[in-house]
Design a protein around this nucleic acid. Structure first.
Lengths: 213, 213
DNA sequence: CCTACCGATCGGTAGG
DNA sequence: CCTACCGATCGGTAGG
């Protein structure tokens, strides 16, 4: 692995764990095994390094998302939710970085959200509204507000999942994360769909499975 | 207002906004209008000041919570949820401080949660289980995991509520926070109670209101 | 509550 | 990728 990638990896972990202000360039350089001055040859400033770390995380997500939206399967919501959970639980540092950035630089993050999140949020909200017309989605749900809460539930929840897990079993079993994510998906689904909608969704999935055998 | 209280107020706001590492003692002292050395007369170290800020926030919450649990009204859950939302939306810095502490010092926060949160979480989880037996609460809900998600939904959601709100309406209307909290309470309730449970709850509330007139 | 000062560490530069 | 070094700022102390 080349030095640049090593620096990005270490910096991602450190920024996620201790934040921008709590991480020094020397600490990153030490862990990589080079001098601070050498790090500043690859990234001209601490700010540039931080930007690169964020860009890397967000671009990975921008690769995954359009593929999910384009899939267009019958139970699109199910797949979208599950893949989002998988993406952030695969590496919780992604979630921690986004959460930290939202706390540290709310103004910058607001602009980024407006550009990167708002458009496809409107698209999914459109699906939700169509679901309300057909009776599959609860009539009293607020599509945009609901989606924002679910995104936050996933991103924020996985950012602090190990801390939440400890309350379930003080010895810290790894099964706690599973228990938390299963309940998270239950909350997200049951607060969106009507009983009729859930039945229809299960019916479609059973049909799809039967057809593929 | 005495100097000590002024220092605590300014420090609370700064720690919530920029975190521990991103806040300097000089910056706090400047805003209060004293010298850094004078600040260190009232609080012997930055760490002590930080501890005092956290203690102040958590002790306020420990005043409110037992009163809510002791109330023992029929729709206890409704009141508990609503008051928790009110407490943190009254001053979102409380939520930001707790969220930051969870990210910065997960080990310390885990111990604190085990001591301060786990006991009464078990109590409320007991209520939820009784609700499952009587059919008011959904049978497939995981009481402890559910409660942790709702706590996170409230605390984390209010910590970043202004950032989430901007996606709803780019000009940033204050009504967005209302829209978000209303949807938050809807998600929390509908994912916990069965339709029968909600009907019973509304019935009880109507009866209570009629009785009080 | 102040002035004056401390060593340590910060991000960053010069020059090789 | 290194050594050597910069000014600025950090948390904290001495002494009044």
């Amino acid at each position: 692995m080349d030095v640049r990638t090593q620096i990005l990896d270490v910096a991602t972990r450190r920024f996620a764990a201790q934040g921008y202000g709590g991480t020094s360039l020397s600490a990153i350089a030490d862990e990589v095994g080079i001098r601070k001055a050498s790090l500043l040859y690859h990234f001209p400033s601490k700010d540039e390094l931080h930007r690169s770390v964020l860009d890397q995380v967000l671009s990975r997500w921008n690769e995954v998302l359009p593929r999910l939206l384009a899939a267009g399967s019958a139970d699109r919501f199910d797949a979208l939710l599950h893949e989002t959970v998988r993406f952030f639980s695969e590496d919780p540092d992604r979630a921690r970085l986004i959460l930290r950035e939202t706390l540290d630089n709310p103004v910058t993050m607001r602009e980024r959200l407006l550009v990167a999140v708002a458009p496809w949020l409107q698209v999914i909200a459109g699906y939700v509204r169509r679901g309300q017309e057909s009776g599959e989605v609860r009539a009293d749900a607020d599509p945009e507000a609901y989606l924002l809460h679910v995104i936050h539930l996933v991103v924020g929840g996985l950012a602090i999942s190990d801390t939440l897990g400890i309350v379930l079993s003080p010895d810290g079993a790894s099964s706690d994360i599973q228990r938390l994510t299963r309940e998270l998906e239950r909350i997200a689904k049951v607060s969106l769909f009507t009983d009729e909608g859930i039945e229809r969704m299960n019916g479609r999935r059973a049909a799809a499975h039967a057809g593929s055998h």
